[in-house]
Design a binder for these strands. Structure first.
Lengths: 197, 197
DNA sequence: TCTAAATATACAAATTTCGTAAGTTTTTTT
DNA sequence: AAAAAAACTTACGAAATTTGTATATTTAGA
């Protein structure tokens, strides 16, 4: 581990900013507010992070990494394909809770923060993982073979586009709701598959 | 009704500011943000309200008045005393939802907004109503007669003080949680009375 | 005690918010 | 359709907040 990440003050800042960002989004929270909640001086903040945006990126990276890890664990685990799919969607729901409404919403509503490309990148990473998963599933016969891998790749691009399409986002309560819809659509098409909670 | 309150733009501003205040508190929300959500120009805003604080007061007054009305209805209604007590506490829970976490929290955390005396006044009004209720209940034999009315009045003052005591507030998740505790204590003392939900 | 790290304080620069004024467009009234 | 009223856009200076840094002081560990 790097020396930064084991530092206690660093952890305090991460924890405080997470609480505040999750609740109010990035824009409504000031650095001083984070510092006072983290009980750390402003100078200490600037020792670890050049500004608020970079801190937000760190946080995003952190939760994304954690998400990826449990994702990987799931994909390589020893349960049936159908179970995997269900757990996957469950996980998607869980991660929505973990990231916090206001946080993501804020990032999309304030493009000037410059974090949208960063989120898109993370989304792409996540999509790559899913592709590997799908390829394996296809090899093992869980997905029909006559579905060309190129089509799936193309469809993933479309998914990424859909998820970042402002007009489409507006139709949903939150960007996360759209992400869920797109994901479920990918797995199930328009067919009914389970009861909505 | 005054012409203001029937005005559509006025209603839009009230509605928008309620949504935003409830979620983020007063301090984190700007007038321009309210205007854009209300789809009203800034000039229109200043036609109705001199500033953000006065708007917040209007909102507080509005929800307080609505609360008082249903409170009055309950007190003068035709159900048994025990039922009234239970409904009363239910109402308290309901009003907590209606007012919104961040709103009240923000008002207490930012004394410079100058709204605390205003809230205290509202609390007093509410306490007066409760006193009338109690007096009536005592007359009708639902509260023991050997409990001096002066003691009850004094206790109400203490309640008001407790509810606005910062040290005490800090011990609770929200100011509302404290209000509930104090209210329940008044009605039931330290005795167990019902299952917590 | 000496040294390195953390903090408080202070401050200029940048940004945001506020409240008002101008002129323009839209709606209503006549 | 013309005139009047209401609402909107744009613009702008003043005030307030936030940012990022420099300096002096305090704290903690070797």
């Amino acid at each position: 581990m790097s020396e930064k990440e084991t530092n206690q003050k660093y952890q305090q800042i991460i924890k405080a900013s997470q609480i505040l960002f999750w609740k109010h989004g990035v824009k409504r929270v000031s650095i001083e507010e984070i510092c006072s909640l983290a009980k750390v001086s402003k100078m200490t903040f600037y020792r670890f992070f050049p500004n608020k945006i970079e801190l937000a990126k760190h946080l995003l990276e952190k939760v994304a990494k954690e998400g990826f890890d449990s994702y990987k664990n799931l994909v390589t685990s020893d349960i049936s394909f159908t179970e995997k799919i269900n757990k996957l969607i469950e996980m998607k729901l869980e991660s929505i809770k973990n990231v916090g409404q206001e946080f993501i919403l804020d990032l999309y509503k304030n493009p000037e923060l410059g974090l949208i490309p960063f989120i898109d990148e993370l989304n792409k990473e996540s999509l790559k993982l899913t592709i590997l998963f799908i390829q394996k599933a296809q090899k093992e016969g869980f997905i029909r073979k006559n579905l060309k891998i190129d089509f799936i790749l193309y469809f993933f691009n479309q998914m990424a586009r859909m998820i970042t399409d402002n007009q489409l986002i507006e139709k949903y309560e939150t960007p996360q709701a759209l992400i869920m819809e797109v994901t479920e659509f990918f797995f199930y098409g328009i067919g009914a598959h389970q009861d909505k909670k």
